[in-house]
Design a protein around this nucleic acid. Sequence first.
RNA 1: GCGACCUUCGUCUAUCGGUUAGGACGGCUGCCUUUCACGCAGCAAAGAGGGGUUCGACUCCCCUAGGUCGCGCCA
Length: 478
Amino acid sequence: MKDAVVTRFAPSPTGFLHIGGARTALFNWLYAHHFGGKMLLRIEDTDRERSTQAAIGAIIDGLQWLGLDWDGEPIFQFARAARHAEVARQMLAEGKAYECFATAQELTDMRERARAEKLPPRYDGRWRDRPAADVEAARTAGLKAVIRLKAPQDGETIVEDRVQGRVVFPNKDLDDTVLLRSDGTPTYMLAVVVDDHDMGVTHIVRGDDHLTNAARQTHIYQAMGWSVPVMAHIPLIHGSDGAKLSKRHGALGVDAYRALGYLPAALRNYLVRLGWSAGDREIFTTQEMIDAFDLPQIGRSPARFDFAKLENINGLYMRAMPDDDLLKALIDTLPHLEHGAALAAKLDASLLAQLRAAMPGLKERAKTLVELLDGARYLYADRPLPLEPKAKELLDGGGRAHLVALLPRLESLSQWNASASEAIVRAYSEEIGAKLGQVAQPLRAALTGRTTSPGVFDVLETLGREESLSRLRDQTKN
RNA sequence: GCGACCUUCGUCUAUCGGUUAGGACGGCUGCCUUUCACGCAGCAAAGAGGGGUUCGACUCCCCUAGGUCGCGCCA
């Protein structure tokens, strides 16, 4: 196996793992697995002001929840600062970089002047070819220097991108990037290149907001005589109105998706089809995804995030999941769900068995775990059940009489199961010449407090004789 | 302002010069039915605009419009 594929996911820990980052991670993960390679994780924490431990935790937790594992230990970029500085000094020594003593004020003025003249705001290279004497003078005057790359000024830099195609940047449009800050810490631009090189990254798959950075980074690779990895800049995800993804549009941390009751496998399936396709195929197992995934099928246009489709896919996954697995997923997710604590508090062996028995009827009525939890509420609600307005109307509007008539018949049942109760109820409705629904709906209202639920006869069975009859008596009393 | 990239049903997409422009979500009809769902059947819905090239353009080229991203001693 020559040239094994090595990809990396390189988030900066300044916030949670958002949905766009999750998709980037997924693409890197799929690509690495498709070619039997590795995906590395690098935490880009060089911004000491904004990087937080909490964000690092959120990112790692998010990746783990999504099932996107990485090879080896995560690399922390800040820990490699000395290596980055060493490379910068090497470039300085080789004349590939130079010291620049321009002050922050000078740079601001430079930009403002450019803006006023409607020119692109760029560094003008004022320290690029200064005589050594000037540099000495500045240093003895106590000025602090940054190290800037001596980037090519003529010709063009070509990024052969596997998604964007051949993108040409005239070098005159790119200025001399800062490599090392005046306090001696490396910039992102330098750190990324050095780390990707040192980590043996062969394929860089990242958001296309980095496309112009790719040209600047290419200059650094060239200055160091390193080979440039394969680049693939994938389009960003947009909100439903086409604008930048905002909170309202789904730019939430992946933990929010967990709290909304989405299954990681479903979210993965939704995300992989956002900007990538394999013919008409919509649903993939993880292995199928790995087998089918490759860079050429990634589109170049940004995709909009669509909750409706995510819900649909999640519902599909829930229905396809074995009942035991789905129940486990629900129980495991309880701590993250809004009303999860109520169920968790009452969860014992018998409730667990009831949930398991009700699962077939429950899962086809839910698109998320939140809906599944809500649908299961009748199983563990306290008597007397609170009635939804429509359920109350149903009982008050004549439904109660049916319950009164049905109660003794149900009480006399020798076998308590769905088919036995169904026979009783059907016989009764035929007797009085009513449609089954006219009788079944009041029953449902009394048993669940609602007008919608799984089939009433299944409800009777899973609730059990005592609980069912008690709930019916509660409603016939008044 | 400059630069890069993007533009097929409302949304995600297929199409790699010749198709009644296909699928999925959502929407709407209907069937099933004890409710709600599920399932099934069906319907509506698209090549941004304008020029070329070509026997023939969604597909290739140019222009326009719109959108996104980038232009820090942030990442």
